[in-house]
Write a protein that binds this DNA or RNA. Structure first.
Lengths: 177, 177, 177, 177
DNA sequence: TTTT
DNA sequence: TTTT
């Protein structure tokens, strides 16, 4: 995998609902989540406090999807880092439609649960420590060069290929996707 | 303006076409550009080199829009930093449609032309060196300043409110957003 | 203000100690905090779980400093976005020393407390839920607005000039700055 | 590898000098570069244009170091994404000193040369500024390609592959808008 | 020390 | 010095 340019999205927000987990034919997990970010400001004219919430559709793959499915819940606060991806699908009338998502995958992808113990309680169990990334050598200045190149690999094809061609999740009407 | 969460997009890529500049009733400029980022990889099955290009719809506002209109051209390489925004509109059948864009505005927004003198020639003239960050005409600059810098409190609402409620640029049907 | 290039740091981590608040001659607040980020990995040779913590020196200015002083505490989880800045100072022997910090200021700067009610209790009171991003007293909020939002042109110079010329916080000897 | 928190630095700037390449006992390459970012503003008091340049010390490892050594030169414009790291060393008096660097490595690390041929590096012609637009030894370049592409598990190297040596996207008919 |  |  080589990339030309930079395509990066960073979100910190709360889940609008529980993650939806699916499995691809390959067996790989996919987690769809929606993350809310919002801004508040005081309306100049009326002096009232106003708020606007932006909903982000996020798709996590592989190990990150599993972790999301296990530990994230509606309301969970999360940090995600991924890339923008627009995919095409057909609506019931056969018309082309497009959906833009934030795709989070091993390499380029990061998912960090925030808030500590207080939220995002694991589904009936304690959180497994730090295994979802892919074990590898730390950023130790002295020994990584060799190890950097050892494990990362299975991710790239995933990153470049179309992930899946299905219609978007169906949400409530007022959610913008 | 206060924000809850983080909503950030960083792109480095090349413009697919010249910017389209419009002006809002308020006089503020809006520039629509499309940025390509791409990834290449070798297909595991066929061994062929493959490439996938992602096109990003980006909307710049105010001063950044003016600079974009003046200096960016099809093929220009650019760094933009903005936020994801999905807006709703009605297609010709009255059906709700959604378009996701990267919105780049004064505060949270950054736009940096890359590559130096070689590209992004100013419209109808040679590009002035090192001046593209600030319009050459102070008058121009001052026209925008009130909205962007001297009255930034106006920025927050702009940032939070729907930027403009117009149908998306009319493009070909096969456009991925 | 115009910038050439991009200088951006994004950190999510926990405070090693309570913020240290100071005030500049101008009256502006400065908050110094240290943020820990860490990585864990399994040692290939020994098979043991290992961890490496990186400590970041962060300086917040103006309103963000005030908020930090009011709501952040040792252990608080926080998202900060700022820029790298290296400043020069003289040690007791008159030798030049350099300290690199993450500077977080109004414009380019972002500070978001994470984790909700569970942590970072406000000094001497219970933290209101979902309100920690904005002081409860509108008066407070308005007090800061003039400096940060209504007169942002004053921010740019601040951002570009050396923020303060003092020796770094004195920490324990083993702290990496 | 698992990380707690986020430690991310994004820089776009120009090299102050040619990269310095070293090799570790393991054989892995390390490239040290310095990147300048700057801000300009108008001094409120004097009305003069002022500029402040920030210099960043960046260390690239492994494949990215090799690419940097081969293609980057003094003046080259580059995008790097890495993490902050402070390391301890002893000066000639045996005193502890600390140096903070941006460490760029395979996974978390990104290095993208900017400007393409448009910016100055003509193909096999006179080099305008630096030579990084075109590989000096094509053989060398080809050495990397096979590894990157035939063994995708060696992703880190792939990430470091020369991006810019491919034909320009042709922005013609196949553009989705 | 870069760049404009 | 944090956190898990």
């Amino acid at each position: 995998m080589a990339s030309r340019g930079v395509n990066k999205v960073i979100l910190v927000g709360n889940l609008g609902q529980d993650p939806e987990i699916r499995y691809m034919p390959s067996g790989g997990a996919v987690a769809n989540i929606t993350i809310a970010t919002s801004e508040t400001w005081r309306d100049k004219a009326t002096g009232e406090q106003r708020e606007k919430t932006e909903w982000h559709r996020v798709a996590l793959f592989g190990k990150l999807a599993e972790v999301a499915g296990e530990y994230l819940r509606k309301g969970s606060q999360v940090y995600v880092e991924g890339q923008l991806q627009t995919r095409k699908w057909q609506d019931q009338n056969g018309q082309d439609r497009f959906t833009t998502e934030v795709v989070v995958q091993g390499f380029n992808g990061v998912m960090q649960m925030l808030g500590g113990r207080g939220q995002g309680a694991p589904a009936g169990g304690q959180q497994q420590q730090g295994n979802w990334g892919q074990p590898q050598q730390p950023a130790q200045q002295n020994n990584f060069a060799p190890q950097q190149q050892q494990a990362p690999q299975q991710q790239a094809p995933q990153a470049a290929q179309p992930q899946y061609n299905e219609p978007p999740m169906d949400f409530d009407d007022d959610i913008p996707f």
